[in-house]
Design a protein around this nucleic acid. Structure first.
Length: 781
DNA sequence: CAGTGAGCGAGCTTCCGCTTGACTT
């Protein structure tokens, strides 16, 4: 009979620990927090000392019942939630809810999931630290007050269903500010000069290398002038320097660095990385994936040392302990690492295997020696000129950790001229095979990816490992931000080349500014951000979280009471909220563009009920104003009067066909023709909705009709609700407006009406739709 | 699938941090 009950936060952890402990112990999990503030009336009794109103959410009722039963039977209940602010609060909620006799409860913590660590924890129980719990309650109450007071202000002043909060609003601010930096960025160009040299050594061996001119020329004329002077110039090596350098391995993974590297190396979104890591964790392959700790268990350090020695040799071993630098880290877990280092491959599909491999390499590399490099710089003078070329080369003296792992960079850097250099001496006279001046452009600051935004938030101490991925999802779900690819634009650049005493000048084209999986703020994100910055700049301050964190620490240290802290924050904040609701204008991001020369009416852009739109004429006037939705790629901030007027040219009436109007327009899915409530897509590049004429439109309508007719594989007499059709993904049955898949290896043309009905019946059984997972999405139009 | 944009008003939306399901084309 088990007389001890141990409660941890995660079920996977419970399973592991149960194996370490004897038959006297049952280990169960709380699945995280078991109580939360009620959603009614803020869940806080503001008038009575901000008393929190806790409830057990529906999906936790079963867990709590189960724990209560087990706790009643046990002689001793060990509360073993994580050793951080949230974990301490979970322990207290458990204690409060489970109605255990005080004498039966012990609070324990451990940092490693090993038998020794747990037994040691059990020998050293303590009581629940109420000061730490109060720090958590202050954190929870502050976040609720901020979120539930600010969001309704947005509903009134901007648009319903929007949200604001301590973390998400700062995330949006970062993106909006970066976007404006990019919009305001003026790219300039200059000419970069590179040369290919050939050197001949005393054994008549020839070798080639590249060199670069450190100086850049701002104008084409100066670059040309320089090349002209090089035509008859001679080149000489005047200096050779070598400098040793060392590179140390990166620290083991935390949640944030794992998300970054999996994004860069494997192309995973942060949500994808977390889901895959979760599966590896649940199957016991890796340690916990939501962590800010860089710590590895001592047993792992020795295992790594053994493994590296066996695999690569003694000199590759250098065990290290890493210290976290990130603000507000709570370090309740270990770094993310393989559970068993000796297992080189793990995971039940390729994504799991790739992520495991990344974690394995990073963990092992973190315990390996530094790489030693030697960087050589050769200076080459040009006769008659002050300018000089430099060639740099890097040689690896000792690979060290680079044998296993190389960290990726965020920014795409300009290709550097590096590599092996021939053995040159001072005084050598290499020959220039060619010298090229290429026009290069300065680049705007990079847009954030999901992972680089997480990195930035972590640097600012905003958000926690468990919330990075959900925060990124929230700001996308609210429509503040979209993640997407954008094609670049063609850009011309000049190339001037000197080769065999001839100078030729050419113009090349390149694609610039294309973006892949980057975060772009939408108009609504910008409008909300501006509104919040205007009225609540203190909450949006990048240091707001850091300063309240300091106060939470003071509460945890017993130097400040949580009532006092919350009261000091809430009074002025609430006054500001009330004042804003009373006095501020509605903020629709309206911008006045100018006067329509044809009608003389004013033209505006703003956010309407269905998203960003343009308007001609006044809303208050008797004559109804004209409306047109902005195109997907247009922004309130940047659209011009001409572009806005263009929008009103569509939809365009082309004429009549079969007594019905034929209309051309651009919709969500591109240009279209509408006739008799049926839509025909225009062919890209072939037809323009601005120019297409009636004859061509009729042609397209007829073409579509023909395709529709050919689509029918079979119809049924006396039943015009049902048909067998040919679709993009093969044949299917349509019945009363819904479509059904035909089972493989069935001849679609040979199906009888009865057989069709039975297929329909079978597939109708499956979808038992539940309401729970339905999430509201705002798609930008 | 793509159009829409009056005005009224009921009833709803919303935060951050812990944890996993149970959904589906």
């Amino acid at each position: 009979m088990a007389s001890n009950l141990v409660i941890v936060e995660s079920p996977a952890k419970a399973k592991t620990i149960e194996k370490f402990l004897g038959k006297d112990f049952t280990v169960k999990s709380s699945f995280g927090h078991i109580r939360d503030l009620s959603k009614k009336n803020f869940g806080i009794d503001i008038e009575n000392g901000y008393t929190p109103q806790y409830i057990i959410p529906d999906d936790k009722k079963k867990v709590v019942e189960d724990l209560k039963k087990a706790a009643g039977k046990a002689e001793t209940v060990w509360l073993a939630s994580d050793e951080d602010r949230e974990g301490e609060a979970i322990a207290w909620h458990l204690y409060d809810v489970l109605e255990i006799e005080p004498g039966k409860v012990r609070r324990i913590v451990f940092h490693e999931i090993t038998r020794e660590a747990i037994l040691k924890a059990i020998e050293n129980p303590r009581t629940i630290n109420m000061e730490l719990v109060n720090a958590q309650q202050a954190r929870r109450i502050l976040d609720r007050l901020v979120g539930f007071e600010l969001s309704p202000v947005l509903w009134k002043k901007v648009k319903p269903s929007l949200s604001a909060g301590r973390v998400q609003s700062v995330a949006v601010r970062l993106l909006v500010e970066r976007e404006r930096d990019i919009l305001n960025f003026k790219s300039t160009s200059s000419f970069r000069v590179t040369a290919h040299f050939e050197a001949t050594d005393n054994k008549d061996q020839k070798s080639r290398f590249r060199a670069e001119l450190p100086k850049r020329f701002p104008e084409r004329d100066q670059a040309l002038e320089f090349l002209k002077k090089c035509v008859d110039a001679r080149f000489q090596v005047t200096d050779i320097t070598t400098k040793p350098s060392v590179k140390s391995p990166p620290a083991p993974f935390t949640t944030s660095t794992l998300q970054q590297e999996a994004g860069r190396k494997l192309g995973f979104s942060v949500a994808q990385t977390m889901a895959i890591a979760q599966r590896l964790y649940e199957s016991g392959k890796i340690t916990y994936m939501r962590t800010d700790s860089l710590n590895l268990a001592d047993s792992v350090l020795s295992a790594a040392a053994r493994l590296i020695k066996g695999e690569f040799g003694e000199k590759y071993v250098k065990t290290r302990k890493y210290k976290t630098k990130s603000k507000g880290a709570q370090e309740a877990h270990e770094a993310i690492r393989p559970t068993y280092l000796q297992n080189r491959i793990e995971g039940s599909n390729s994504n799991e295997q790739r992520l495991y491999d990344l974690i394995w390499k990073r963990t092992v590399a973190s315990q390996m020696s530094d790489a030693r490099l030697e960087k050589t710089t050769i200076t080459i003078s040009i006769s008659g000129l002050d300018e000089y070329f430099t060639a740099t080369g890097e040689i690896m003296k000792f690979e060290g950790f680079l044998k296993v792992y190389m960290e990726s960079d965020d920014e795409e850097q300009e290709e550097q001229v590096k590599g092996l250099l021939p053995p040159l001496k001072k005084g050598d006279r290499p020959v220039a095979l060619n010298i090229t001046a290429t026009e290069r452009f300065t680049q705007h600051p990079p847009r954030y990816t999901e992972a680089s935004l997480v990195k930035k938030l972590e640097e600012l101490g905003i958000g926690r490992p468990s919330t990075y991925a959900p925060t990124i999802s929230t700001i996308q779900n609210r429509g503040y931000v979209v993640k997407e690819d954008r094609p670049g634009t063609q850009r011309k650049y000049k190339v001037i080349q000197l080769e065999e005493k001839n100078i030729k000048e050419e113009v090349h084209t390149e694609t610039a500014g294309s973006e892949k999986a980057k975060l772009f703020p939408n108009d609504i994100g910008m409008v909300v951000n501006d509104f919040l910055m205007n009225h609540f700049n203190d909450i949006l301050d990048y240091n707001f979280t850091a300063s309240v964190e300091k106060e939470f620490d003071d509460i945890a240290a017993g130097k400040l009471t949580w009532h006092h802290m919350i009261d000091k924050f809430y009074n002025p904040f609430h006054k500001k909220v009330e004042k804003t609701v009373e006095t501020s204008e509605k903020n629709k991001g309206e911008r006045y563009l100018g006067v329509d020369p044809e009608s003389g009416k004013n033209v505006y852009v703003k956010i309407g009920r269905f998203g960003p739109m343009a308007q001609t004429g006044e809303s208050e006037s008797e004559e109804k104003p004209g409306f047109a939705a902005l195109r997907k790629e247009q922004r309130l901030e940047t659209i011009t009067l001409e572009e806005a007027l263009e929008l009103f040219k569509l939809p365009r009436k082309l004429g009549q066909y079969e007594d019905k109007d034929v209309v051309a327009g651009i919709g969500r899915f591109g240009p279209y023709i509408r006739h008799n409530n049926k839509f025909v897509s225009l062919k890209k590049d072939l037809d323009s909705p601005y120019e297409i004429e009636l004859d061509r439109a009729i042609e397209l309508i007829e073409e579509k009709r023909r395709a529709e007719r050919e689509k029918v594989i079979r119809e049924f007499e006396g039943n015009d609700q049902m048909a067998i059709l040919k679709g993009r993904w093969g044949p299917y049955i349509t019945y009363k407006g819904k479509n059904y898949k035909i089972p493989k290896d069935t001849d679609p043309a040979g199906l009888t009406a009865e057989q069709c009905l039975s297929i329909i019946k079978n597939s109708d059984k499956k979808p038992a739709k539940k309401k729970t997972a339905v999430r509201k999405r705002q798609k930008p139009k």
